[in-house]
Amino acid sequence: MVDVNMTLEMVQASQVGMKAIGAGIAVGLTGIGAGVAEMAIGSAAVGATAENKDVFGLVLLLTVIPETIVIFGLVVGLLLLF
């Protein structure tokens, strides 16, 4: 909503603020999503490694796969800001 009494500077400042909030939400929500996904994968990975140490490298790789979601969020955030 635009207030008729707002100056150009105020509108521009508001837009920058909204973009920053959008970038924050993009990174924050994807971070939470990755965390939830990593909780399950990480638990299983620790369980599998406890029984068979040879799988450590493989499960480490599987555990970080959900990190890609955060990267998407980060890219969206950066696109919004710059």
Binding site: M39, A40, S43, A44, G47, A48, A50, E51
Partner: peptide, 16 residues
Amino acid sequence: APYIYVCTRMRVRKSK
């Protein structure tokens, strides 16, 4: 999470 941990350990043990 501990359920996932234990159930995975059981699956690995079963495979052995």
